[in-house]
Each structure stands twice: as C-alpha cells, then as structure tokens.
Design a protein around this nucleic acid. Structure first.
Length: 571
DNA sequence: GCCGTTTTCGGCCCGACTGTTTTCAGTCG
C-alpha cells in the first residue's frame, strides 16, 4: 500500500473541518490546514520519507504531533483522531460547508437545532421555512441556500487558465473604457499563471469607487450580483465564472496588487515578517503605527523587506523568500526565449492542418525549427503511421527543408510506449529520425510499479529522447496515471533524456513542482504545444508559464537553443 | 498544533460585505 501525499492532506483537511465545526481552537485548525496544504503540494512522497525514517518535523508546519500522525497514516492508512471526531459529528457536515454562505458555525447550528446533516434535509428545511426561524438566520439566507444547492449540482470546477484568458481580456477592455478608470490588473491565480483558476480578481484605480462598481455589475455577461459595496463587488458571469472587483486609490496600488495576487501562503509569510518588525501589512500598505512605510509599488514593498522583486509565478511560499534573501531567485525563462516547437501533429494523423501549413505557421511565429511528431502505428484510432508511411513523410520533409531553409523541419514521431515498455517502431526507422517524443497512450491503469518500469524500460532504448506528457493527466477530466516521477527523472538524468512540459491547456503536464524537481536533478525540459492545428502553436505561452512556476531558466529548457546548438545537443 | 534575533509561553494575517442585528457575528478571500 502506498499512501499518497494528497490522501494525507485530505485526511488532515477533513479533521480540520470537523474541529472547526466543533469549535476547536482556530489556530489548531489552521495548523492542520497549513500542513495539509504543504503536504498536498510537496513533490516528494511523505510515505517514502517515513519509510526512510527521515525526520518529518524538519518540514514547515509539521511538528512532533503531526509527524506522528503522518507516520500513523502511512503505516495504517487511518487517522484515528479523525475517526474519533467523526463519532461526535456526522462526516456529512463537511460537505455542507462547501455551500457558499455556510461555514462551520452555521452548519453546527443547523445540525444541533434542526438535525440537518445532508443536502436533502437542508433543502426540505429551507423549503418549509424552518431555517429562517433560527436565530442568526433569515429569509435571505434561506433563499441563498436553495440557489446554491441548485448550483452545486451543476458545477464545482476550476477553470483552465487558457479558458479564462479571453474573458479576462474582455473585462479588462470593458473596465478600461469606463471614464476615470486606470490601472486595470487581473491579479490572483491568473497573475500567478496557475494552470487553473477558481475565479478572477480584478483591481482598478478610480477616484470614485461606486461609479466603477455600478458599471462593473452592468457588464453584459453578468448573470448574478453576489455582493456590491463601495470598494468591492463580486459577480457571477453566465459561464459560471466568479469575478471579484476591487477599487483601490492609486497611492495604495502596490500594496493592493501584492495582496490580491497572493498566494495566501506567500502573503501570510510576508505579513509575519512585518509583524516581527512591529509593522502592520494590509492591502493598503505597510505601516509602523500611523506612518506608512511602503504602498505605491510592489517593488517598493519588497525593497522595504530587503528583498528583490519576486515574480508572481514564484509566490507560493515554496522557498522564494529564502532564495530572494540570498539573491538567488532564478532568472525565469520568457516566451521570447523559445526557438521552436518539438511536438506537433499534422493531417497525416489527427492534426487539422497539413505539414506545409504547420511549417508556415511556425515560421510566422519567428521560430527556427519545428519537429513533426505524428502518431505511430499502435494508435489505430488516429491512423498512426507505420514505418512505410513514416519514411514517406521523412522524404517529404527532406524536400520541403530545401525550400524553407534556413528554417528547419526536424523529422520525428510521437512514438507509443507499449505496455511492456517497447517502442512501437523498429530501431531501423527510429534511427532515421532527428528526434523522438515517446508517450503513453494506453494501459493507464497499471500499478505504479508496473507503469514506472514500463517507462524505465522504454528509456533504455537509445532512440528514446523526450518523455511526452509524463503523467497523462487531463485537468478536470482525468487523473494522472500512477507513476514514480522521481525515479523517472533520475533515469532521464542517467540516460540523457528530456521531459516534456506539454502546453496543451488541459494537460500542462509536467506540473510546476515536478518541473522544479527535474531541474534540481539536472534534467532539462522541453516546452511543446502538442498542437493539433496551427492556431494551437500559440499555446506555447502556457507552457512557458508552467516552466516559470517551476523556477526554470532559459538554460533549463532544450528548445531555447538555436538550431545549430540544438542539433549538437541531440547527437 | 506550530514556532522562536522580543518569546519554550503566548502568540498565531486582516479587512470588506452581508444579513440580521440594533452594535455585530459569520463568512470570505
């Protein structure tokens, strides 16, 4: 039995929920939540650390007690403290807290007075107007419960970064057009370029807040106004996406930007640093008593703490403060560093555009090269190429190369890794390719051990080059297959292979933490779009965002090399 | 429950909005 970090984090979060309903010390609750957040994000397996008898109390937010609980979870799969709590409080109350407007206090009251512990009872009680009779509840709350119950059935997901990009731009334009408005910024997880965002946080400056808010709630795509004050408002768009607007005086803009960009963990760390100096740090600025020490720009604020500017993508409290103190923040890769795309499809298999169209689109983007990586024979669904068709494609590419030079089309394929770890083309044909992307497209449900061994075996093939979309996950659709990435990364180092950051918005595979792990082991990454049409080539920006969140610099990414150096590296 | 260059005890981020109050608790980000 392998207990995954996410499972440990989940148990701690559940315990925190129950303790909160019970009315336990809120700081104790926070301790469980902090630990859960750290554990869920940690790239290293805690189960492995327990087995290796490492001292878990060295991890942030993990003390003697939590270390013990983690050991118990890893060895038994259970958290007895949680099971004890669950005897006093129905577990189902945790679900009820997911409803916006219902927190621990209200859930507890509903349970104790009306014996409500599930959504059905809640709905019945609201419809019979039993809830509005309770002290602290009213008709509006009752109404809201009914609306939210309906909504929670419909959607409960986060949005892909790429999916909110257009609406973010549209809202920015709309707000900019309001007279007097300036400095429109979409902050939050959008600015940190997280792979998914839960909502949009927009910041504007304007002398009169209420005028902007009035205009904001009239944005044509607004379906519900959730709150509307004089400096902030929350609405829901018809797509379901929630948008928060904050109106801030220009003089406070830096502090507000910092505050609303987050992450929460990053903000709390900086605020703790302020507290230690006897200062107060809120969305208006850093204050010593009544005196304001910094507020205008984020640079000014970081400078006050004797830190260099920390790019939004790094603000997760995952070591960026320590690196900043030592002046060792990475010089993050930028979109302009990318010289070519090493994973694209054409009409020869499941792409929508021809070889020539893909090449022209790449040239238009200013690239120096592109690798054509159509699928191979094992993938019947998309008419994967057998060796005969692939050699015809190679000849076609060689001819086309004479025309498009100095641009270079690299001959390649997205080679299937078979269940037993063999590649599905012979070495003879693989030897003729400039580069390969090797990926898993079948047998996702192998055990972690078997899946890892499958890839390890494939990696021993001398023509293996890039491991494509290494976890196979599809955001909001499919979990990653079980695979030990740390072992894979070590093997990649040993054999001189690369790992892909697949920039398809629904893949974003590898994730940020494993990008960073690869970098720490000295393994280079490749940022590719896996484009199935020429328009998708522009998705490269999302891959670059992911790389930045993974602390990657230009030199950590293969396809920042100019053509001649790339060809040398591939030898 | 965690943590420490004010501390091993006594702190722990903080303000806006809503609804139900009649001065504030609860929730949220």
């Amino acid at each position: 039995m392998t207990v995954h970090n996410k499972e440990i984090a989940d148990l701690f979060n559940q315990l925190a929920d129950l303790l909160e309903i019970e009315g336990a010390n809120p700081f104790r609750v926070r301790a469980y939540r902090n630990a859960a957040r750290y554990i869920a994000d940690a790239p290293h397996s805690l189960a492995e650390r327990v087995k290796a008898k490492e001292d878990l109390t060295e991890l942030p937010g993990i003390g003697k007690d939590l270390a013990k609980k983690i050991e118990t979870i890893v060895t038994t799969g259970h958290l007895p403290a949680l099971e004890r709590e669950a005897k006093n409080i129905p577990h189902a109350l945790i679900d009820m807290m997911r409803l916006p407007g219902l927190g621990p206090k209200r859930v507890k009251k509903l349970y104790e007075i009306l014996n409500i512990n599930n959504f059905d009872d809640l709905k019945n009680a609201a419809e019979k107007h039993n809830i509005s009779q309770l002290p602290g509840f009213g008709l509006k709350t009752e109404e809201k419960i009914l609306t939210e119950l309906k909504r929670i059935k419909e959607t409960n997901k986060r949005y892909l970064l790429a999916d909110v990009e257009d609406i973010a731009n549209e809202l920015t334009d709309y707000l900019n057009a309001i007279p007097g408005v300036s400095n429109v910024t979409v902050a939050g997880s959008f600015r940190r370029r997280c792979e998914t965002v839960g909502d949009l946080d927009i910041l504007v400056t304007n002398k009169k807040g209420s005028e902007v808010i009035d205009a904001f709630v009239k944005f044509p795509k607004v379906s519900d106004i959730i709150s509307q004050g004089s400096t902030r408002s929350t609405v829901r768009l018809s797509s379901g996406l929630q948008v928060d607007l904050r109106v801030v005086p220009k003089i406070h803009y830096g502090a507000a930007m910092h505050y609303f960009t987050g992450s929460k963990a990053h903000n709390i760390e900086l605020r703790n640093r302020a507290v230690k100096k006897g200062w107060k740090f809120n969305e208006y600025g850093v204050y010593k008593g009544d005196e304001c020490l910094a507020r205008k720009t984020e640079h000014e604020i970081y400078h006050l703490f004797k830190l260099p500017f920390i790019p939004p993508e790094l603000r997760e409290n995952r070591g960026e403060f320590e690196a900043a103190e030592k002046n060792q923040l990475p010089h993050l890769i930028e979109l302009a560093d990318i010289r070519g795309d090493l994973h694209v499809h054409t009409t020869e298999t499941d792409g929508a555009d021809t070889l020539e169209e893909m090449v022209q689109a790449a040239i238009k983007l200013g690239y120096e090269y592109i690798a054509i990586t159509d699928h191979t024979q094992n993938l019947k669904m998309v008419r994967g190429q057998d060796e005969k068709r692939l050699s015809q494609q190679i000849k076609k590419i060689q001819k086309l190369n004479e025309i498009v030079a100095p641009f270079r089309i690299l001959t390649s394929a997205e080679v299937d890794i078979l269940e037993d770890g063999r590649l599905d083309l012979s070495d003879d044909i693989l030897a003729q390719l400039d580069i390969t992307v090797c990926s898993i497209h079948s047998h996702f449900n192998l055990s972690e051990k078997d899946q890892t061994n499958r890839v390890l075996k494939a990696m021993k093939n001398p023509f293996f080059c890039i491991f494509g979309h290494p976890t196979g996950r599809l955001l909001n659709q499919r979990e990653p297959y079980a695979i030990d990435l740390e072992t894979i990364i070590k093997a990649a180092k040993k054999h001189g292979h690369y790992l892909e950051i697949n920039a398809q918005p629904s893949r974003m595979d590898l994730d940020d933490q494993h990008c960073r792990m690869a970098k720490e082991y000295g393994v280079k990454l490749v940022i590719s779009t896996d484009s199935h049409s020429k328009n998708q080539l522009r998705n490269i920006q999302f891959g670059v965002s992911q790389a930045r969140r993974g602390w990657l610099e230009k030199d950590d990414v293969l396809n920042t090399l100019p053509l001649n150096k790339l060809l040398k590296a591939l030898k």
